[in-house]
């Protein structure tokens, strides 16, 4: 039983990381209607920036994370401006291929700077682990920070969407960008801001992911990126609570699958659950609530 609970906690921890990535994914998808394949690689860049500043330059972790968030925000906006903005009216496939190109580009830039060897990432979290049930169950500091960060981000985003002018502009653009423009919403800057927020979240997710799973390569981001997209679809793409629930569920399913069924089949189980959910409910778990589309 203790074993099950600790797997569950690990699952929620991993799921929180997926949820943070999925939140960024779902926002970008909602507003730009594109599969941003480069999102996962922004995660990787975020982790590498922290690796350079904290392990390399010896800055305090908080400063490193802040630099990483700023760097990724700028990166996200630059990607949007250079690669996606010219293609705003182009076919979906053209944008998808461009996103793939950006993904290759980021991976290879990281490869050139850091090489292909796996870097061991030093955790940025310095909270003592909590020991429960006479040492039978240990909750690491990373887990606590990840889960709390995820909840704060989700609540923050929902508040931002609901009450701020910029957030409501995002909702309006995702609903109907033409109509939003007629109502005086600056569509271009709204889309740029969505990318900025999504990339900032990706940076945080990258740091948290590598703090819990400390191996870092230029390809670290691509699989979590895909999984987070799966999580976003799972919960109903475009929906913020959906991305949160989808992420947590995905993390729990993956860890429990690894623990009880087969460690090699964990990914297959995750994808199988996605397929079943989509076949039963083609718009995802919370896909119906179009009002909450971002």
């Amino acid at each position: 039983m203790i074993g099950f609970i600790s797997y569950l906690v690990n699952g929620i921890s991993l799921g929180s990381v997926y949820a943070i990535i999925a939140l960024g994914y779902t926002m970008v998808y909602g507003i730009a209607k594109m599969l941003n394949f480069a999102h996962g690689d922004v995660i990787m860049i975020g982790a590498f920036v922290v690796f350079s500043t904290v392990s390399g330059a010896g800055l305090p972790p908080v400063v490193g994370v802040l630099i990483s968030v700023v760097a990724c925000t700028l990166l996200g906006m630059a990607i949007e401006r250079i690669a996606y903005k010219p293609l705003r009216k182009a076919s979906k496939l053209a944008v998808l291929i461009t996103a793939i190109g950006v993904s290759y580009f980021l991976q290879n830039v990281a490869l050139l700077i850091y090489g292909a060897n796996t870097k061991s990432f030093t955790s940025v979290v310095s909270i003592e682990p909590i020991t429960l049930a006479d040492g039978a169950m240990v909750i690491s500091g990373e887990t606590i920070v990840t889960v709390i960060a995820c909840i704060i981000i989700m609540i923050g985003l929902m508040t931002f969407m609901k009450y701020s002018k910029a957030g409501r502009a995002m909702l309006a653009v995702s609903e109907d960008s033409g109509a939003a423009q007629l109502m005086g919403v600056n569509v271009n800057s709204t889309i740029a801001m969505t990318f900025a927020i999504g990339s900032a979240l990706a940076a945080i997710a990258g740091v948290l992911l590598c703090s819990s799973y400390p191996s870092l390569t230029p390809y670290t981001g691509s699989m979590p990126g895909i999984k987070a997209f799966v999580a976003a679809v799972f919960g109903g793409i475009g929906s913020i609570p959906g991305a949160f629930i989808g992420g947590i569920l995905l993390g729990v399913i993956e860890i429990l699958g690894k623990a009880y069924i087969s460690s090699q089949l964990a990914d297959a189980i995750v994808f199988a659950v996605l397929i079943i959910v989509l076949l039963v409910k083609p718009t995802g778990l919370l896909g119906k609530q179009i009002q909450e589309k971002v």
Partner: peptide, 14 residues
């Protein structure tokens, strides 16, 4: 990667 991005922008953007 750069060729990919540039080609897409060249062929698909206004």
């Amino acid at each position: 990667a750069i060729i990919l991005i540039v080609t897409m922008i060249f062929t698909s953007s206004p």
